[in-house]
Simulated assay, not measured.
Amino acid sequence: MFFYLSKILFFLIRPTNFLIILLGLGLLLRLGRWPRTGMTAIVASFLGLVILGFSPAANLLLQPLEDRFPQPASLPQVYGIIVLGGAVDTVTSGARGEPALTSSAERLTTVAGLARKLPDAKIIHTGGQGLLVPGQTTESAVAVELFTDFGIDPERIVLEDKSRNTWENAVFTRDLVKPKPGQTWLLVTSAYHMPRAISVFRAAGWSGLTAWPVDYRTRGPDGKYLGFAGASEGLKRFDIAFREWIGLAAYWLTGRGTEFFPAP
């Protein structure tokens, strides 16, 4: 139920969707009995799209998330590398019969180097299909193709292909690999998603986690006040940042996260 509610609610409150819904509502009111209210909604929608699309708002929200867990200066010896889903377009991959990656592809491509540097570590990919309407394949099915193409021994690869969100990533992977006290695990996901992932994995009982953030979208503190040349880029980045902050709050309030904004 949590999965379906979260998908439906976020569709409605996602900033770009909300502003378009507001615009449509404004047009209806403008043509109906409340033209002044309708005009207010139209102007608010337009200003929202302009501000979120061109201003530094997205970077101001995203940069603290990306910098919360810095990448370690050196790789520790780990028992396993946990790679979170989100890098595979399961609909296109299933339809085309070829791996199709999202803008978070670095979650998968970084594994090639990590596997060479940590030759004794297990490679665990966790991710099924995080869509309301499933595709014809799973993220893990595509990931294993790429990992074997990287030259990784299939004996090292462990797949969890049922999870649909970060909480299920943590719980289903825990039940699959049964981590033991004293083991160190490298957690790989997008830098902006790392705070939520760490909070959720800790709440699910994981210990010994070392964050390995990838897929950075901002330049860091020096670039947080920079705007965007194209509104589509700013709007997309704002949607990502908004989703993560809302996700942190939702998981924390429902007991699926240890704290609202976890620290290393």
Rank of each mutant, 00 (worst) to 15 (best):
L114T: 09
G80A: 04
S190L: 06
G38M: 07
A57P: 11
I21W: 15
G257C: 00
W185A: 05
A73D: 13
F228P: 07
I198D: 05
K224T: 12
P213L: 06
L12E: 11
R30Q: 14
E66F: 00
P99Q: 13
P181E: 13
A231Y: 01
I240N: 03
V88L: 02
E160S: 04
T210Y: 06
Q183D: 00
G234C: 03
I124K: 02
T37N: 13
D222A: 11
P195G: 10
Q136K: 15
E106D: 09
I51L: 01
P262D: 08
A204N: 04
L52F: 03
L101P: 11
A249E: 02
L114D: 04
R107W: 03
A112C: 14
G182H: 03
L27R: 09
S74M: 07
K117A: 15
F242C: 05
F238L: 07
D222Q: 09
F3R: 14
S104M: 12
R68Y: 07
A231E: 01
T92R: 15
Y225H: 08
F69N: 01
F54A: 04
K7D: 14
L9S: 15
A203K: 03
G85A: 05
K180Y: 11
P70F: 01
P72G: 02
E244K: 07
E139W: 00
G255D: 04
S6H: 09
G227Q: 00
L29I: 12
T189A: 04
L5M: 15
A231T: 05
S93M: 12
S45W: 08
S55M: 08
A204S: 02
Y192I: 01
R96M: 15
E168G: 06
A170E: 02
G113D: 12
V111M: 07
T92Q: 15
I157W: 04
E155S: 10
D222K: 08
Q77P: 13
L132D: 00
I21M: 14
I81H: 03
E233Y: 04
L159D: 10
S74I: 03
S207E: 06
G151H: 14
A95P: 11
A249F: 05
G135M: 11
L27N: 12
P99V: 14
F11L: 14
D215E: 12
A95N: 14
D153G: 10
R36E: 15
I246C: 13
H125G: 04
L248K: 08
P35E: 15
W206E: 02
F10A: 06
T189R: 01
